[in-house]
Design a protein around this nucleic acid. Structure first.
Length: 287
DNA sequence: AAGAGGCCCTGATAGC
DNA sequence: TGCTATCAGGGCCTCT
């Protein structure tokens, strides 16, 4: 589920809840996530004091006072839930993201604090946890990733230069974390719709104005999504008010066959598979 | 270097 | 009802 805005929402609620807290105990129920949970995982984290929670791209970063880190990636289906520890474990409605009803089958990792725990649930196990020893190794870990859309590094010069001789479709590059990091499949379609650029336009054929639009609307869409609490699709019945609202703002995503929402456009939304992912666009105004 | 394709995994849904 | 096929918001790896 998680693209940059959703991860940012999780990060914010985590920061509110576990900043300055001390990890009491770690329980790993399934070590086989995307990458194997290392043997020293529990020992490494036990008694660590959390300085703050930060985020880069789609990665959540637990910052500890001893300058070590734990990074969490939610993959496609990872969610983090808050659980009260005492009595019969009762789930609060403070679910950080998605359903307040905690699924039990795929609760792979539990991090216990004084009075509560956070639980990592991930049916598809595409997510992962990684331990990082120091700041240097942290920046090395992210060195292969391009700038976030919000970064000053994501500017006209960079974009034009990067795409100059690229033959792949522009959609592929919005998904390419080496080019720009944090955008995923939903927001890629939404951004290109606002830009009025066909997702199948070859990157090298974008003119200066189109590059400017990509930069502008990438920032705009992600910021708006964060403001609205992210997007919750495949909604469950039990969702609390904590769910995101940006799915109501989708202009093209999952709107195949429907009329284009641009005020003066008579086009229809089409769906095509581009770089192995569903891509939605208007056949008229994204020519 | 750049691009295409495969793979990791479970669950929901559609079609027969 | 039960089977199979397809699809899902990500990212890494290999091969050409």
């Amino acid at each position: 589920m998680p693209e940059l805005p959703e991860v940012e929402i999780v990060k914010q609620s985590l920061d509110k809840k576990i900043r300055f807290k001390k990890i009491k105990r770690i329980i790993v129920r399934n070590r086989n996530l995307r990458s194997k949970i290392p043997k020293n995982f529990e020992i490494f984290l036990k008694n660590k004091n959390i300085k703050k929670i930060s985020r880069f791209s789609k990665y959540i970063i637990l910052n500890f006072y001893d300058d070590s880190f734990c990074i969490i990636h939610l993959g496609m289906s990872g969610t983090i839930h808050l659980v009260k520890n005492y009595k019969k474990k009762k789930f609060t409605n403070l679910s950080f993201y998605q359903s307040p009803i905690l699924p039990s089958k795929h609760n792979h990792i539990e991090i216990q604090f004084q009075n509560f725990s956070i639980i990592y649930n991930d049916p598809r196990r595409f997510g992962f946890f990684e331990l990082i020893k120091n700041k240097k190794k942290l920046s090395k870990r992210f060195s292969h990733l391009g700038p976030e859309p919000f970064s000053k590094l994501f500017n006209l010069n960079y974009v034009q230069h990067y795409l100059k001789s690229k033959k792949k479709y522009i959609k592929s590059f919005l998904l390419d974390q080496k080019f720009v990091s944090g955008i995923g499949n939903i927001y890629a379609s939404e951004i290109l719709f606002l830009c009025k650029i066909n997702p199948q336009k070859k990157a090298q054929n974008l003119n200066q104005d189109e590059c400017k639009k990509i930069i502008y609307f990438s920032k705009l869409v992600l910021k708006k999504a964060i403001r609205l609490g992210g997007s919750s699709i495949r909604d469950f019945k039990n969702v609390s008010g904590k769910n995101g609202l940006f799915q109501n703002e989708f202009k093209v995503y999952q709107r195949e066959h429907l009329k284009c929402l641009k005020y003066d456009c008579q086009g229809k939304i089409k769906k095509k598979i581009i770089s192995k992912r569903s891509t939605f666009f208007c056949n008229k105004c994204q020519n």
